[in-house]
Design a protein around this nucleic acid. Sequence first.
DNA 1: AACAGCTGCAAAACCGTTTCATTCGATTGC
DNA 2: GCAATCGAATGAAACGGTTTTGCAGCTGTT
Lengths: 333, 333
Amino acid sequence: MDKPTIADVARLAGVTKGTVSHVYNGHRPISAATKKKVISAALSLDWSPNYNAQALAVQRANAVGIVLARDPSVLASDTFFPIFLSGVETVLAKHGVALVLQVVNGHEMECEAYRTMAQGRVDGVIVLDLSRNDYRIPLLKKLQLNAVLADSCNSSKDRGFSNVWVDDRAPIKILISHLLELGHRRIAHVSGPMQYVHSYERAQCYIETMGSGELLRTGDFTANSGVECTKDLLSSSNPPTAIIYSNDVMATAGLSYAQSQGFKIPEDLAVAGFDDDPISEHLNPPLTSVYTNAFKRGQITADRLLAEINGALPESVETEPSRIRFRASTGDR
Amino acid sequence: MDKPTIADVARLAGVTKGTVSHVYNGHRPISAATKKKVISAALSLDWSPNYNAQALAVQRANAVGIVLARDPSVLASDTFFPIFLSGVETVLAKHGVALVLQVVNGHEMECEAYRTMAQGRVDGVIVLDLSRNDYRIPLLKKLQLNAVLADSCNSSKDRGFSNVWVDDRAPIKILISHLLELGHRRIAHVSGPMQYVHSYERAQCYIETMGSGELLRTGDFTANSGVECTKDLLSSSNPPTAIIYSNDVMATAGLSYAQSQGFKIPEDLAVAGFDDDPISEHLNPPLTSVYTNAFKRGQITADRLLAEINGALPESVETEPSRIRFRASTGDR
DNA sequence: AACAGCTGCAAAACCGTTTCATTCGATTGC
DNA sequence: GCAATCGAATGAAACGGTTTTGCAGCTGTT
């Protein structure tokens, strides 16, 4: 009734545990005859190697971790993460590696999560939502944990970790110049929290390109903050004619608010988002957004992490540039 | 430089490994003096027990699993799951239990995922997206895996697993009677795939309450299918004046499509969704939807699973009934 | 003073697998 | 025909903890 062990298989096959092990991992040549005996014994007992024992013996968990420090409602409206995750999983599945996911709130719990992961639970972690001067970097180094950072610029030269980055400035520049061509002069930006590298890079690029931060508002990626920032911008004495939001949830909420106040989109106000939520092209009007290829980034990130776990050196790799999906909310198509 | 082991701690404290172990798990009384020695030794070495070794010894992984068989884009637009997950994690974190998540595509990979989880990687699983006559139920029984099902009706009397269920019929009934009161007579329903219990229950209740399935269309929870079903319904010779969708993504896409065709919402068409996506109340018009309290359901589900892992018997528990958030898309507020 | 009953720790066995040094037997080369 | 070689299997020692057993040294009772 109890789960059979390798010893049971060995006994039934008339060989030793070591031989059974070698049959299954191919680290030593085994004669065809014994191989057959062992396999049929294992099959008849319905045996498969115990994960924890294996992990203990080879000192490898065959798992990687992701720690998310996010509020549930922010988590819910982020469409980047689940698609990124799918990409990660396609790669992990191919190598029989599991993903352990921890959603935490607060600095304390976050550190704790990394710490327990470092106790042999995972072989490495993927670090998302990178902050400028992220405190996790020294922590991870101290824990001697393999890690790959998902970054928004090539800032990790000397950090000793791999990073898989995408240029978050380029799409902002393109969006702005496109809006300028359409005749817009007062272009606003609703950013995410500035501690995040992605929010910061986008906002910084916006300021540099526009030459001013007058029409910059800082949101927090929630629908609520999208509405609040929009309200603030539109009620000013010299309101913008276009707003670029740092994600689609804020853009959608802002757009809907503007509509409810009688603004015609895009005639009175052009709107663009970021991350291209699958729903965005089905809104009314369809929302212009930046497609960041989250799936592929997930795959590349996982690939790098596995490589590093297998001994490769840290490396900085740039992923495919984001592309802009121009739609009716900016007057396109 | 290498990670310290329990033996290092024992040596430094001048005791044996067993004593160190007892200090940390309290299975035997230890004198205050030794306890102090051991703890200070552990602290100075920065030791903490190795996860795999512990798991092997106590035959418990201290982890639970979730396998999701979903297409990335469906995963991305599902807001139920991330919030449910947050609820699960709050409970797990409190008990130091990790979550291993596997996103798979296809029956084959799904079985494989459950199988590897059963090899000691997790102590139990949470089963989502239950199908009628779900093939996973016999599989899980065969694998002798603890499991809690997230169900949409109390159908699991004799299945031998705990289920945490919510009545998905009640909100449909309320929605329909509300729409009837508002004068609607032709009320349509866009469901999810009928193999899922939740989709089936909602659709079945819809048919029973309306007395006909004439205005029932089957979608797949994607924005695209929301548009297609809506197009089909609105282009019929006797179109509905109200549509209830089985999730908010389809509802939002359908609503936007109707608007783009010149329908005024809610005057020409009333629209309601399901699951109350955080963005829904910020749409234009705000979307009436069914709030299912995913966070709490996650907590309750995790609690049951942990109880069962600790020896409790399977049990069927009904969670707090869903409540309807009436908003302008149905002419409320 | 003898004996039972505690208490607190040491020692050893165990969890299920991998790995490493070794042995055994069959070939091969000279 | 004998040493050297080689492939295949063995047995024991890790891996890093937990749990059980056993023993020494007290305490307290009669």
